[in-house]
Design a protein around this nucleic acid. Sequence first.
DNA 1: CAGTGGTCTAGACCACTGG
DNA 2: CAGTGGTCTAGACCACTGC
Lengths: 258, 258
Amino acid sequence: MATAPLPYPESGVPEAGTPAFSPLYQQIKGLILQSLEMGEWKPGEMIPSEMELAARFRVSQGTVRKAIDELATENLVVRRQGKGTFVATHAEQHVQYRFLRLVPDAGEPGAEVPAERSIMECRRVRASAEIARPLALRAGEAVVQVRRVLSFAGVPTILEDMWLPGTAFKGLSAERLAGWRGATYAMFELEFGVRMVRAQERLRAVAADAQQAPLLKVPKGHPLLSVERIALTYNDVPMEFRRGLYRTDSRHYRNDLS
Amino acid sequence: MATAPLPYPESGVPEAGTPAFSPLYQQIKGLILQSLEMGEWKPGEMIPSEMELAARFRVSQGTVRKAIDELATENLVVRRQGKGTFVATHAEQHVQYRFLRLVPDAGEPGAEVPAERSIMECRRVRASAEIARPLALRAGEAVVQVRRVLSFAGVPTILEDMWLPGTAFKGLSAERLAGWRGATYAMFELEFGVRMVRAQERLRAVAADAQQAPLLKVPKGHPLLSVERIALTYNDVPMEFRRGLYRTDSRHYRNDLS
DNA sequence: CAGTGGTCTAGACCACTGG
DNA sequence: CAGTGGTCTAGACCACTGC
């Protein structure tokens, strides 16, 4: 049972200079977030109904509703009318690759064949400074490094290097990666308890070097789309640094602005 | 005065097979959208208060609120507590280039020097099939074609071709473009009454050709980020097709996923 | 049919802005 | 101080799902 928040209590005295006013629904959102984080409800499971949560937190349904609304727009939970509200998951989600924005130039965006994966490397190494920084680690700490190639209909399209914190991903191996069917992030959820919640990407155009070119079956110097991604779990803790090189001959990176 | 919507009226009989249920706040949103579209309130102006709109539409404040909430998340209006709700505008907006995602690799994202623009070309041409399609025009219809280079601190960084429907942009010239201070989309608003509301982008890595390379001061074959954009106004009507070639040597295209 | 999320209302009060 | 958006409540009813 959580302590019941009173209207506008805001624990402690207000700091000087900081407005530090957080509405009730934000506090409720924080409490729900804590429960998600601590695993009170696991990915794919249903969370308590709005009425139950309202009773638990001693607030009205509308206040819980607004809190859940925000969690839903952040894709942390999924509302399903008539059924309930569920913890978002990368598995069994209609969008198999939630963070992959590379789509075929033509054809239905939904009817995409699943990619064939070939793991080329998976080993524990010490993080260089360049890798440690985006992962918020110290240089020299253990990380798992993965290199793989994704092919669509036999055409090698994505060359990807991933670095994962060694402590959280102890036991990750090429075999486990190769044997897994479905999204990689789904495996991270189920096997390592790591939920990727959001990500930041940096895109660049680069030229394929002598090592990369044959893996993607393009000539050396061929322009490739470089996509660096930091994937974050709860509380914006980075849990993956990834660099993908995308062939954009017959695919493109799609982005909607508003 | 608008006709007052009754609770759950949904004009006409429900179509067979289609659920066709639209909640009251969606209808209100549609009515507000109409007023925005028809220019009842101009960009930058304040729209009536929630109470006024509630009275006008004969609904409660909460229903108007939910309608405006959606318009705000779509960036069509901007709420300012204590002041009112304002029609979004590309001018006088803190984010000067709302749709430009290219940022310096290092340094404050906000403290960006304004770009220098050099208009290289601005003329009326007949649309080819490739240009007509994204603009939803027929091949052969008149379009205005603009080519320009954007430089940051003297470094040419973006080579951009834009195509605009000839009828809506009658009178656009290189002089007017060159003389304008501020975002281009702000000029389109104020001078042509065209509000870009959202956009779709397709990104690719390409190699600079013999014509493009000298304009960006890079060697032929240098990898460039190609950004094709369709900018849409109300009702998803396309009003601009743009192709930018970005140098990504010391800048990158930033994207946040969630 | 019961249970869930979704909509709508009416009213009270709070926080912010500007004159 | 009045006017605006923002929060919160309590209660009613609707739409959807699955038993």
